[in-house]
Computed example of a mutant assay.
Amino acid sequence: MWVFYLISLPLTLGMVILTARYFAGPEVPRYVFFTVGYTWFCSLAIIILVPADIYTTKFDLDRGGISFYWIWSYWSTFLLTWAVVPLIQGFEDAGDFTVVERLKTSVRANLVFYLIVGAIGLFGIILLIVMHKIRIGNVLAFAMACSNTFGLVTGAFLLGFGLSEIPKGLWRNSDWSTRQKVLSHKIAKLAVKLDDAHQDLSNAIMSKR
């Protein structure tokens, strides 16, 4: 089993690093790079954990270690999905000039989103309890099931989109004349957005003086 670990762990880690470096832009901050890399590693850790889990179950070995790694993988992915990654995404998208203000904007936007989702979820749980569909003791398990369902539905949606969009994009890009027209149209739109951004920046600088 140690041979499997010595092979699978470096391969998985190397695949994550190479993929992240390939898709990362030159100006991507390091904390974003490492966060994305750790997120991908937690997701791909199933390649290592599933065979290890089967091995320990088949030979009736101590499951303390594998249980710990399953819990680590699950809660790491959970926290990254619902807290860390949205916070970083909001921080990077914020247009404020200081780190503190950008962080406040990100926290505020995420709190609004989670309050709305939490209110809807709380209403649904109360409704199910009143209708005697679930018990109060099963609320945590129900919440975890909803979280897993959200992940599965999102993954299926993105996979379905990729299966149709990637071949479509390859088909369109094979025609160079059509590709040139599309890029020319995008350049014109980006030029307009760039001018608007410059104007907004000039107005913001003037208002700060």
Rank of each mutant, 00 (worst) to 15 (best):
W176Q: 15
G64W: 07
I205T: 11
T12V: 14
N203M: 08
T56D: 07
L44I: 10
G155M: 06
P26C: 08
V36R: 06
A24E: 09
Y31P: 06
Y31W: 02
V192K: 12
S76C: 13
P51Y: 02
V16S: 08
I66G: 10
F113C: 09
Y55Q: 08
R30G: 11
I116N: 07
I134R: 05
A197G: 04
L152I: 06
L140P: 07
A83F: 10
L111K: 01
F97Y: 15
L163K: 06
F113P: 10
K58Y: 09
L163E: 10
R30N: 11
D96M: 09
S174W: 14
Y5K: 13
L115I: 04
I205R: 07
Y74A: 15
M1Y: 07
L190N: 09
W82M: 03
M206D: 10
M206L: 14
F150A: 12
L163Y: 02
G14C: 08
R209P: 12
T149V: 14
Y22H: 15
F59K: 07
L190G: 07
E92A: 02
K58N: 05
D175E: 12
R172T: 13
L194M: 03
D96H: 02
W2E: 11
Q180G: 11
F78Y: 03
V107E: 00
S76W: 03
W176P: 13
P167N: 07
L158A: 07
F41D: 10
G118T: 06
I48G: 00
T57Q: 12
V117W: 01
T12I: 13
L159S: 06
L194C: 11
D53P: 04
D60N: 12
A94H: 05
M206S: 05
R108G: 03
S67F: 09
F113M: 05
S184Y: 14
W70A: 03
S164H: 13
S147L: 01
V50R: 00
T57G: 00
Y114F: 12
M144S: 14
T39K: 07
E92F: 04
G64C: 08
W40G: 10
H185A: 15
T149G: 04
P10M: 03
F161S: 14
E92V: 04
N138E: 15
T98F: 09
D96G: 01
L194G: 00
F41A: 07
D93W: 03
V36I: 01
I17H: 04
V36A: 09
L11W: 11
W82S: 04
L158T: 06
I54E: 11
R63H: 04
F41I: 11
V192D: 09
I187M: 10
I47E: 01
V153M: 12
M1W: 09
Y55M: 00
L183A: 15
N138P: 05
F157S: 01
V130H: 11
L6N: 03
G155D: 09
D175M: 09
G14V: 02
N138D: 15
Y69H: 10
A143S: 12
M131C: 01
G14K: 06
R108C: 03
D175S: 12
V50I: 02
G121A: 14
L13A: 08
L9E: 05
D175A: 12
A197I: 03
G14Y: 10
D195A: 12
G151Y: 05
T35W: 07
T81A: 10
K189A: 04
R135T: 15
L6D: 08
A141Y: 14
Y114G: 13
A188L: 01
W75G: 11
L44H: 10
V84S: 05
Q180A: 15
N173G: 14
F97S: 15
L13M: 04
V112T: 06
